[in-house]
């Protein structure tokens, strides 16, 4: 079946079965590999993208449910003012280790800062709870979100 998607400002048509998770449309059909597969059951956050600006687990979001929605992935987040600040903070603090979870971390962090431009450490912990990092880069993630908030203010 043919579906039309608005992703990173472009309109794309894909041929997929109804019920296909958005994650696999993005990765396998559109070959945009920045969005990652970690668990498939909405418990790690590696697959986080924005659907109409809201951080969303693409592994549990189905292609039939998002027609007409605006999807943003890590590949385009630098065009967002908050996204650019988050990426800058991530580089300043060298948050990444293996890096596999970090697209999802960054997409969630942007969502947090959009809702709460000046979060506390506790805000970060509760908002980012669902984004697992097996390398345990958490303390840098926390610091980088707070740093991004500073960059946004400057």
């Amino acid at each position: 079946m043919s579906f039309t998607l608005k992703i990173n400002g472009e309109t794309k048509t894909v041929d997929a079965e109804p019920g296909t998770p958005l994650l696999w449309v993005i990765r396998d059909d559109l070959k945009m590999t920045g969005t990652k597969f970690g668990c498939g059951v909405a418990s790690c956050g590696a697959c986080t993208v924005h659907v109409d600006g809201e951080p969303t687990r693409s592994c549990q979001t189905y292609i039939d449910d998002i027609e007409g929605a605006e999807i943003t992935t890590i590949e385009a987040i630098e065009n967002d003012r908050i996204g650019a600040a988050v990426q800058q903070a991530w580089l300043e603090l060298d948050v990444v280790q293996c890096g596999y979870c970090q697209s999802g971390q960054i997409m969630s962090a942007v969502g947090l800062l959009r809702d709460t431009p000046k979060p506390s450490a506790e805000d970060v912990d509760s908002y980012m709870w669902g984004n697992a990092c097996r390398c345990a880069t958490y303390q840098r993630i926390r610091a980088a979100v707070l740093r991004a908030s500073e960059i946004m203010e400057a």
Binding site: M32, T33, G34, T35, T73, I74, E75, I77, E78, Q87, W90, L91, D94, V95, V96, G99, Q102, S103, I106
Partner: peptide, 10 residues
């Protein structure tokens, strides 16, 4: 390896 790991290009 940081830059490519924060913009999805890695």
């Amino acid at each position: 390896d940081s830059p490519a790991k924060v913009n999805g290009q890695a």
